[in-house]
Design a protein around this nucleic acid. Structure first.
Lengths: 340, 340
DNA sequence: ACCGTGATGGAAAGCGCTTTCCCCCATCGC
DNA sequence: GCGATGGGGGAAAGCGCTTTCCATCACGGT
């Protein structure tokens, strides 16, 4: 049972009657070739003993591991889980294992995880959207990342190019601006934006992009209501907006989750979205595509973004930082019908 | 820069003018105590050199790691990402890193991951719902798991107790049966079930539980339409059902995703759910709580399940297998109004 | 004054691999 | 027929830690 300690390579070598070196070469490949006959003997011995290589030992001897780290704010958020899904699939193709780090949006945790991944000698790290305007924290993260990179690690980020690493840049500004323009062409004239916390970059960028588009086209800035960057935040923000007497004909929630909360708030207040008021979101979360009325939003290829981030981080390192821009596509649905 | 190889413990020891042993004891704790003065010197040296322990080396020396593996079918599915979220949070509390393995429902991948986790000498493995009726595959997984356990590993499963490990058993049967009873008490009499593939245990159990409840109360078995265990599967199944002329007043989709697809199919067919037909799901996926009409479903405490699974797998090992039952709670919403 | 005791520091033996050398021997060219 | 050549096996040196086993040293009891 659990008594007999796991077979080691030496056990296999002995069993096969070859040297440790040969066993290693036969089992885990190398540039050196082993005579087929011996190779077979080693393989047989290994399977007979139920040998499983010790990845930690290999990591030590080889000086490199087969794991990559992924930092997300909240894996149960569909935005991140979709990215994670794409990244995980790509990782699997490369034979890499993914270390999932759920930061919960806590800077302390983020740093702890970064340290842990470094300790693990992870081959690469992908940071997904933990961007904040908190300069102090961003600086600390940049510092940790830099020493990780100096130690031979690779890293990439998803979202804003604020860290000294390659990044998959999501065009939040452009997407939101395009959405604003689209809403205007649909006939809307008075808008409000439901935003997340001010120091959340995604939120700030989307808000700014939308405002810019709106301002350019109508000459006026949309109103703004801030709350949490979540379903409930959207609900609260929308409720507040409605209470204040909504002098608006359309509302842009900076992400789909907030938009869905807003939808619910409208429903509760007896406001019919699509007829009385238009609502739009951002991300095009898959599980949210069936809400009613269908939510107008900006589609982001989330899984592809995850895949891309991994490709970026595993590809040829380059001297200068690379940015891979990703543009969203405005998807119009029933929540923003053309206005007569 | 990247030239100077990372500082090792010996570097720190030398810098601090102490032995390797002392440095180790001072930095990574142990039962042995180090004089405060020395301790401080070591800490200073470490920080001066930017020392980061090598987890792989520690794993080798200690014979144990700080990682746990999590196998899920598809992390981008909210069911699994919620479980993963709960588990990840719990792992963080224990200072453990989570290896995320996305099997994509492919048996081959599942086995590969299991082997990989064993190679990594993961402290524990949690298998989340990859249960299938495929006996051959289940047997192979059981085999891999057993040798992993024999090697001193710990493992737990979420869903059905089919593997030789502790498991968080989700009472799919009971939940579905309770749902059936509830629907009947609401006045429904003719039901249909939208199921996933036959060899998917979750689906089969929910169907059976529902059928049992229905049969006991009405004396008749609900009709059944099978398709994929996904939103689109639900959509297709429901479309087919509607085409065949629906002699039913309520439909149970074996999970929320399918139910939402069904909702969409109804909408497209001009059938108003809540008035013309009732629809219910299972899981109570958070992001789906705002669909309209509100979906009646069976709530599962997904995050808690993830947490629990980790607790189970990290707790005192026990001789006999433990099962931790989890019961869902029927949540009635507008999609199944009382029938007059 | 002497020896048992407990607290600490250090030397060194691994942990399980990979990989560099080194060496042997069968081939090959002339 | 003989040295050069190279394919392929093995010994052994790490990789960076932890931990056992000693060795010291300062006390306290008698």
């Amino acid at each position: 049972m659990a008594g007999e300690r796991a077979a080691t390579l030496s056990d296999v070598a002995r069993e096969a009657g070859v040297s440790l070196a040969t066993a290693s070469r036969a089992l885990n490949g190398s540039d050196r070739v082993v005579r087929p006959e011996l190779q077979e003997r080693v393989l047989a011995a290994a399977s007979k003993l139920g040998y499983t290589a010790n990845a930690n030992a290999q990591a030590m001897a080889r000086g490199s591991t087969e794991t990559v780290g992924l930092l997300v704010k909240d894996i149960s958020d569909p935005y991140f889980s979709s990215i994670a899904g794409g990244l995980a699939d790509e990782a699997e193709k490369h034979g890499l294992l993914v270390m999932l780090c759920n930061t919960g949006g806590q800077p302390e945790r983020e740093k702890k995880f970064l340290a842990a991944l470094r300790r693990q000698r992870s081959r690469a790290i992908v940071l997904a959207g933990s961007d904040t305007a908190d300069v102090r924290h961003t600086g600390e993260v940049a510092g940790l990342l830099t020493s990780y990179l100096d130690g031979g690690g690779r890293a990439a980020a998803i979202s804003q190019p604020r860290l000294p690493v390659d990044t998959v840049v999501i065009d939040n500004h452009g997407g939101a601006k395009a959405l604003a323009e689209r809403l205007i062409s649909l006939g809307y004239r008075r808008a409000a934006v439901l935003t997340g916390p001010e120091d959340l970059l995604v939120s700030a960028e989307r808000q700014a992009g939308f405002a810019e588009g709106w301002l350019e086209a109508t000459g006026s800035e949309p109103a703004t209501v801030g709350d949490e960057f979540s379903r409930d935040g959207g609900h609260r923000a929308m409720s507040r907006l409605l209470e204040d007497g909504p002098d608006v004909d359309c509302v842009f929630a900076v992400n789909d989750l907030m938009a869905v909360g807003a939808l619910a708030a409208c429903r509760e207040a007896g406001v019919e979205v699509g007829r009385d008021l238009a609502v739009a979101g951002f991300d095009d979360i898959e599980t949210l595509r069936d809400v009613t009325p269908g939510l107008t939003t900006v589609r982001l290829p989330l899984a592809a973004i995850g895949r891309l981030a991994l490709e970026l981080v595993l590809g040829e390192p380059s001297a200068e930082l690379r940015n891979k821009p990703i543009h969203g596509e405005v998807v119009v649905r029933e929540s923003t019908p053309p206005r007569s």
